[in-house]
Design a protein around this nucleic acid. Sequence first.
DNA 1: AAGTGGTCTAGACCACGAC
DNA 2: TCGTGGTCTAGACCACTTA
Lengths: 243, 243
Amino acid sequence: MSITRPTPIAEQVNQILRTRIRDGSYAPGKRLPSESELSRQLDVSRATVRTVLAGLEAEGLILRKQGDGTYVNLRIQDVNTHLGGLWEFSRLIESSGRQPAIKELTIQPRPADDNEAECLALPLGSLVLGMERLFFADDQPVILVANAIPLHFLDQSAAPFDGRLHIREFLRRYSNRKIAYAITDLRAALATERIAQFLERASGSPLLKIAITFYDRDNRPIICGQSYYDDAALHLRLVQAWG
Amino acid sequence: MSITRPTPIAEQVNQILRTRIRDGSYAPGKRLPSESELSRQLDVSRATVRTVLAGLEAEGLILRKQGDGTYVNLRIQDVNTHLGGLWEFSRLIESSGRQPAIKELTIQPRPADDNEAECLALPLGSLVLGMERLFFADDQPVILVANAIPLHFLDQSAAPFDGRLHIREFLRRYSNRKIAYAITDLRAALATERIAQFLERASGSPLLKIAITFYDRDNRPIICGQSYYDDAALHLRLVQAWG
DNA sequence: AAGTGGTCTAGACCACGAC
DNA sequence: TCGTGGTCTAGACCACTTA
C-alpha cells in the first residue's frame, strides 16, 4: 500500500486549464477568463492562478497582455516541444501527432567507455548498465539512443530491467535517485554506417546529435546518453517565450 | 547595494543575487542565506525572493533542496545557454568566455523569397529588409545569420540601419513592435560551398541550422531568420531544470 | 472609466532533511 | 526538534489597454 499525498492545488489547476485548452473549451486565439474570474471559478487564490498561468506562458501555450487579457496561442499545434522537454523523446513524438514506441536493442552491464567515464565522473573501467534503444514514430525509426548508468545506482535485485520504459520511469523503478537537472549538448553529426542502418537513412546523412547528462540534487551525474535524431523524419520545433 | 523604487523590486533582487553569485560572494557549491534571511537582508517579502530564486533555478544557476537549503550550482561555467536564450547569439558567445562581434555582410530591401513569404505570412514578392550577418567569437567566424523583416514594420526614416545591433536592440530602435515569443526549428545540415567559405569550414561539414520566427503579442510574424551554427567552434550547451 | 494583467506584501501552514 | 524550502491565501496598489 503506497502513501498518497493530496495533489497540490496548483497542479490541479494546471491540469484543468491544459484540458480546457486541449479540448477547445478555450479555443485557439480566444481570450481566457480573467485571473480574478478563474480564481473565483476554481475557488483558489489569484496568486495560485498566476503561478499556473506563468508556467503555461513559459511553454508558449498562452499569451498574456497587460491591460487586455490572456489568450490561447494559435500556433501551438505546429510545435512539439518547449526547451524544457528536450529529453522526453516519447512525448516529443506524441506531440507531433504520431504514435511513439521504444525498441530495446541491447541492455547489459559493461565497462564504461572513456566518454562515459568522464561524463559520469567514474574511474576508468567502472561498470555501467549500457542501454541502446530505438524510438519509433508510427513504426518509422527516428531516434537512436545510447545510455549509461553506473551499476551501483541501480537496484540489482530488480533485474531484469525493462528497456522500454521512459528514462523518468526507469529511474523511479530501479533507483532511488532523483534527477534535479540536465546538461544538454546539441551538435550536428554525420550518420555512420551503423547509425544510418538503424535509422534507415543514407550513410553520411546529417543528423542531430543530442548528448545529455542528468544530475541529481547533490550534483552527482546519474545518467549520460548520446542520441542521434533524424530531423528529416521528425522536426524539432520549439517555442520560447520572450522573457 | 540598496533597493530603490523605480525599477521592479524583483528585478533588483535578481541583479543583486546574480552579482553575488558571479563575483563569488556566494561561492559554487555553497549554501545561500535562507529565503527568510534574504527577505530580511534586502527588505522585501519572501514571496518576492522566491520569485527570483525560481528564475535562477530554472536557469540552473542554483539548486534548492527542501528541508536543507539553496546551493550555487557547481557546473554553471560549462554552460552557455538556458531555456530561452537560444536567439541571443552574442550573449551565447559571451557566456562561452569569448569575445563576440557582428559583421554586417549585406543589408538591403529586396523581395521576400518563398520561404520568407510563408514564414512571415506575406504575399509573394513583398518587400523585406534582408540582412546577412556573421557572428564572430574571438575573431573566429561561428554563426552565419540571414534575417528578413517586412519593410512596413520598419521606420524608414531611421535608415541607414545598423547591421551590427543585436536583434533585440535593432527592433527597439527601428520599429515599435515588441516580440512576445519565437518558434525555433532545429536541424542538422551540410555546409554549402558558400556557407563553408564564410565559416571557414570544409564544404559538406555538418552544421546546426537554426530557423527562428519571431512573433509579436498579436501573433503576427515580425522576423524570420535562418542561422548556420558551427558547433565545432562553439558548443551549444544548455541546462534544463527538471520541472 | 472600467477591467485586465503586473507587482508586492504579510502572513499561515505543510513537508522534508539535518541534527 | 528545528530550520529549510514548498504551498497557498487575501488583499493592496500599479500599469496598461480598450472603450
